Amino acid sequence: MLLAVDIGNTNVVFGIYGGGSGWPTVWRIETRDEAQDKLSRSLNKHIGDKEITGIVISSVVPFFTHIIARQLQQKYHIAPYVIGPSSYPAIPVEILSPEQIGTDLVANATAAFDMFNSDCMVVDFGTALTFTVIADQRIHGVNIAPGLKTAMKALAGNAVKLSEIPLALPESVIGKDTTTAIQSGILWGYVGLVEKMIERIEKELNKEFKVVATGGLSKVLKPLHDQFDAVEPLLTLEGMRLIYEMNKK
């Protein structure tokens, strides 16, 4: 089985690929919880005696990459494959600025192009809200905005009452109290942001795109689902698998 490890700024997402069964086991730990004992307990809990035959890592946190890769190699006696610029010639999408773009965005683009085989766009609801535009079989560009939780935390600051407000979309666009006022401002505001960004990208490039949403919060903004051709929470893991397999041929 293939173990995929997606190291992000907030969480480390683990997934075990089971072939025809897809990704039967997926879990996450907070990025700061990478201490060896916590990582080892997490792996033992979710993997148990399953046989791991390959490991692929995507990371936007270089410091943690080396720590986690070393621990995984010691535990499973397999050298992890770490996605980077040397991986990109094997994939069907041309990468602009390969030294700058996050490997998670490349994984998203790879999976989206494999899904649609046409011009497409990935909207990733993570720590950052990103729009990855794939046109004419290359990553045309990326837009980055603060993610939903990032925006909420920035607004809440140290105010305990604000930090306890859940990320739930209120029925009314107009807030009636502190909670719904903040929920409406951020969540309905992000609905407008995503709708307008997709519209402006398509207008600027004079193309219609297939749009796929991913990320842990991709299902929060339900009014946007009409904008998406697919919602795939595990798109990044799938892209990592594809890049791994393309480079192992």
Rank of each mutant, 00 (worst) to 15 (best):
Q137I: 00
I174L: 15
A181I: 02
I134L: 07
V133E: 02
L162W: 03
A151C: 11
Y190M: 13
K176I: 09
V123T: 12
T178S: 09
V122R: 05
S118C: 05
K153L: 15
P166A: 07
P89N: 12
I186T: 05
L162D: 05
L187H: 02
S87M: 00
F116R: 06
S118T: 14
L129R: 04
A145R: 05
E164Y: 03
A109G: 14
M115S: 11
N158R: 10
K149F: 04
A181E: 07
T103C: 08
D136Y: 01
E171I: 03
G185H: 04
F113I: 05
P170Y: 06
Q100A: 00
I134F: 04
P170M: 10
L167T: 02
H140P: 01
I91Y: 00
S118G: 09
P146M: 12
A151R: 11
L148H: 11
V142I: 08
I174M: 14
L105S: 06
D104A: 14
S118V: 00
P170T: 10
P98V: 11
I144M: 11
L193K: 04
A109E: 13
D124Q: 05
A90R: 05
V93D: 08
M152S: 15
K176F: 01
C120A: 03
N143Y: 13
S163C: 07
I165R: 06
L148W: 07
M115D: 08
N143L: 15
T179K: 15
A181Q: 06
M115A: 12
K153H: 14
I186S: 08
L169P: 09
W188T: 08
V93G: 07
M121F: 01
N158D: 12
A145W: 02
A128Y: 09
F131N: 04
L187A: 06
H140D: 06
